[in-house]
Design a protein around this nucleic acid. Sequence first.
RNA 1: GUGGCUGUAGCUCAGUCCGGUAGAGCAUCGCGUUGUGGUCGCGAGGGCCGCGGGUUCAAGUCCCGUCAGUCACCCCA
Length: 419
Amino acid sequence: MASDRDVFQAPKGTRDVLPPDSSRWMEVIGAFAGRAELYGFGLVMTPIFEHYEVFARLGQSTDVVSKEMYDFVDKAGRRLALRPEGTAGTVRAYAQHRPTPPWKVWYCAPNFRYEAPQEGRYRQHWQLGAEAIGSDDPQIDIEMIDFLDGFYRSLGLRQVKLLINSMGDAETRQRYVAVLLDYWLSNAATLGDEMPRAQLNPLRILDSKRPDWQVIIAAAPKLGDYLSDASAAQFDAVQAGLRSVDVAFEVAPRLVRGFDYYTATVFEFQGLALGGAQNALGGGGRYDKLSAEMGGPQAPAIGFGSGIERLLLACDAEAVLPQSTSSTDVFVIDAIGEPDVAKLLHEIRGGDVRADRSYGSKNLKKQWAAASRSGARFGVMYGEREWAEGNVVVKDLSTAQQIEVARLQVVQWLRDHLK
RNA sequence: GUGGCUGUAGCUCAGUCCGGUAGAGCAUCGCGUUGUGGUCGCGAGGGCCGCGGGUUCAAGUCCCGUCAGUCACCCCA
């Protein structure tokens, strides 16, 4: 930008959402809210920042905690952090308020992560999410996944693939991680100087995209082979349930997800129409130990997050959820500078009809041009001749046909013809 | 955090290789219409060529730095 030498820019990795694009955001959020209600979830709103330690419980080996947190010290010396994801704060709220389980809640909130931005990856990004806390019933796993799957479909998305896996219970996972670490150590030559990372979190190597690692990753021991009978039964139940509600899925033995708190079921929806590496539309899983780790009650739980920016990119890529072309139905044109125009607008809007006008003294030509640009279906002109006769001119802006309607009947006329 | 590519009007971009005082389309505004838009015709405004430094008689163009975007790694939504 040539002229922005004195103009502030949004900070790196953040974006403004302006009309008309913002109307798509409202559509997406509204669709999610409606679906959440269908599935029995209530809205939860938690602070945008928490005590640092709340998020630290996500695990020191996760990048989100170890290097991406926006943390700061407030004026009283408290160490706080901007929310990097939705689950921790929600679980904190559960532990604090002890609502009757199962606690089924949804949210729409911005998250903050200090990382290198690129398309579909921002330092402030919005997530729609849901959590169900206080039940280990696999039925709730199924319901969660069905909820999110149905949400994507309701927007018209079709090129979406669901991957699921089971992390097993704590003992399963511990046993498997030990085996996996041995395997990485035996392949130290390939992993090279990334070995410390493999030792810190052996699971994370499994979903690496590095081409030179793919051979050893493909040959790595599979978590599924180490599941306990109980874990395997739980995972089977989830799969059977998904089939019964016609949710298509693929078992992905190397799907591990980014946070350390996951246990048992994990899942991820990938947008196949999204180019590049940022193809995760949404994902989640069980976190049966997190509430207890926060000092709350033992409360097995499952949740997911779904990024709004990526969702809209996927909609663009699949050419669904088109931007609405009009934000108004009626445009009122004032030909005579009559103060009653404001009253007419007030009445039209009072009749639940979207209406707008021009401001400042503009000639008729400009006002009609503005009416056309607004995308309104009808123009209502307040003209001198008709005004004297107690009428207004109503023009259909798509056909250019116009008629006169009695001033006192025009609100009802518009209501009738906009149906 | 590491490496590649990109940055010119409100938007999308040409011009950069080979240095010589800035272009197009769309959008905006005006006129053709005195009470009628969307089409059409004519016209206008709008750029320290991201920012800073260097080379040169001369830099949008070459060199260095920096900021931002983007791609890959990392990681995730």
